[in-house]
């Protein structure tokens, strides 16, 4: 590692060592490395949104999401969305019950009136 690259390589190795020791974070480490490499190659430093979405975007403090978590969330959502449907079905059943009961009462009352009229007419 001599000649023209000696300076940049000293900087790159020192930068990596800082990252390995936790002195700088991954986002800053990669940004600095891109700047060093681009200074060497003569290319423009890429915009951050061009850069690869690496573990920089990860939030280590967040609880990791597993397959079981996803299944549990889906199951809970399904049960929740089913509850109003079940309640509505029960309400429909209630309305129909009243209608049928009323209809039966009307039919029974009509029958009783017809029977009474038939008996009274024969006895007269």
């Amino acid at each position: 590692m001599k000649s023209a690259s000696e300076g940049i390589n000293r900087d790159l190795l020192a930068l990596t060592e800082s990252f390995a020791e936790g002195a700088i974070g991954p986002a800053e480490f990669r940004r600095c490395r891109r700047e060093l490499v681009c200074a060497w190659t003569g290319e423009a430093v890429p915009e951050i949104d061009q850069a690869l979405p690496a573990e920089d975007d990860t939030q280590p403090a967040m609880k990791p999401v597993t397959d079981k978590d996803i299944e549990a969330a889906q199951s809970a959502a399904q049960t929740e969305s089913n509850q109003p449907a079940l309640a509505t079905a029960a309400a429909h059943r209630g309305h129909w019950g009243w209608w049928v009961t009323g209809l039966l009462l009307v039919v029974a009352a009509g029958g009783a009136v017809a029977l009474l009229w038939f008996i009274l007419r024969r006895s007269v």
Binding site: R33, C38, P46, Q50, A51, L52
Partner: peptide, 17 residues
């Protein structure tokens, strides 16, 4: 391989990580 060489380095590192 991305066009920018520094991103190529990033891509190789990401693959190894």
């Amino acid at each position: 391989r991305p066009d920018n060489f520094s991103l190529f380095v990033d891509a190789v590192e990401a693959a190894l990580v």
